[in-house]
Computed example of a mutant assay.
Amino acid sequence: MAAVIVSLTLAAPLPPESNTRFDGKVSDQNLRIDAERSEDLARRNVAVPPELRLFNYERAPLCREAAGRWTMGSTDGTCPAPANRAGVVQECEDGDTIVMPMWRQSRATPADAWSDWQQIDSGGCGVDLLPVLTEADFRRLPLPAPTLTMQPDRGWVLINIETITYTDPTPITLRTDLLGYGITVEATPTRWTYDYGDGHTLTTTSPGHTYPDHDVFHEYEHPGTATITLTAEWTGRYQIDGNPTWRDINGTATTTATTNPFTIEERTSRLVSDLCTDTPKPPDC
């Protein structure tokens, strides 16, 4: 498997909620969003100087006091006695960790006092809080052009004779960065489209093979000049440093390669009285 290391930072646009108040109505219950969203807001909030922040974020357990009142526990995961820890009621995959609920306190301006802590998500599993490598991110990676080989490769081909094409299906590995996380990406070409330059195309999931085991080829019908263009379609999966799970990328990317121009020739055969290799060459050759 080929390996490529690239320094590329893929960052999502800054959400409008960062360092501003949430839009929408707040019911008697605390405002809730999904854990991945709140984790993203908390990460981005760190970039704001503490004296200018309008929000603070902390993960802490949900604690139930003896009187039945629910309150925020300590960031170390404990609840004040005699309260009971409620935490996150769910199961995570083996090797993953349970993430405590996110709490937030806010203020209207940097000069105002901080509000009480409010719970804004229900927590989750560690994998739920990791960033997602999108199709757009995948397409920005430096995927290589596909290998394009033709047989025969001598600057010309014959009409009505098979022109063989094939490529290399080997996956490649790239390293990149996503929102501060190191990412390993494995990209695999899975489908290929050949444009033979004469109005004919062929889409296949076979990388092709050399003669005589070839299964991807084209027969030109008319003399002329052509080039062959190959478009490879890549699928991918990625793994975030520190997490054992491989996740599929939702979408594909494409790269292309083109041969040098070549001529398409028509050759005919005829009987001659002598060998055309004789010297001098016979006049009927």
Rank of each mutant, 00 (worst) to 15 (best):
M1A: 02
T9P: 04
L10W: 10
A11P: 01
N19Y: 11
T20S: 15
F22N: 09
G24N: 14
K25P: 04
V26T: 10
S27P: 08
Q29K: 14
R32M: 12
E36A: 14
N45I: 04
V48L: 05
E58T: 01
P61D: 09
P61N: 11
P61L: 10
A66W: 04
R69S: 12
S74E: 07
G77E: 06
A83S: 15
A86H: 11
V89C: 00
E91G: 13
C92W: 00
E93G: 15
D94W: 06
D96E: 11
I98V: 14
P101D: 03
D112I: 06
A113T: 06
W114V: 02
I120A: 02
S122N: 10
L129Q: 14
P142W: 00
L143T: 12
A145I: 07
T147P: 00
T147C: 02
T147H: 00
Q151N: 12
P152M: 03
D153M: 01
V157E: 04
V157W: 01
I161R: 11
I164W: 01
P169S: 07
I172W: 12
T173A: 07
G180P: 13
G182V: 05
A187V: 09
P189H: 03
R191M: 07
T193D: 03
Y196K: 09
Y196V: 08
H200S: 10
L202C: 07
T203I: 05
T205Q: 13
S206W: 12
P207T: 00
P207A: 14
P212N: 06
H214Q: 11
P223L: 09
T227L: 06
I228Y: 04
I228P: 04
T229M: 02
A232G: 05
E233F: 02
R237N: 07
R237F: 00
Q239H: 07
W246N: 05
A257P: 01
P261K: 15
F262P: 13
T263D: 15
E266D: 07
S269Y: 15
V272P: 10
K281N: 09
D284Q: 05
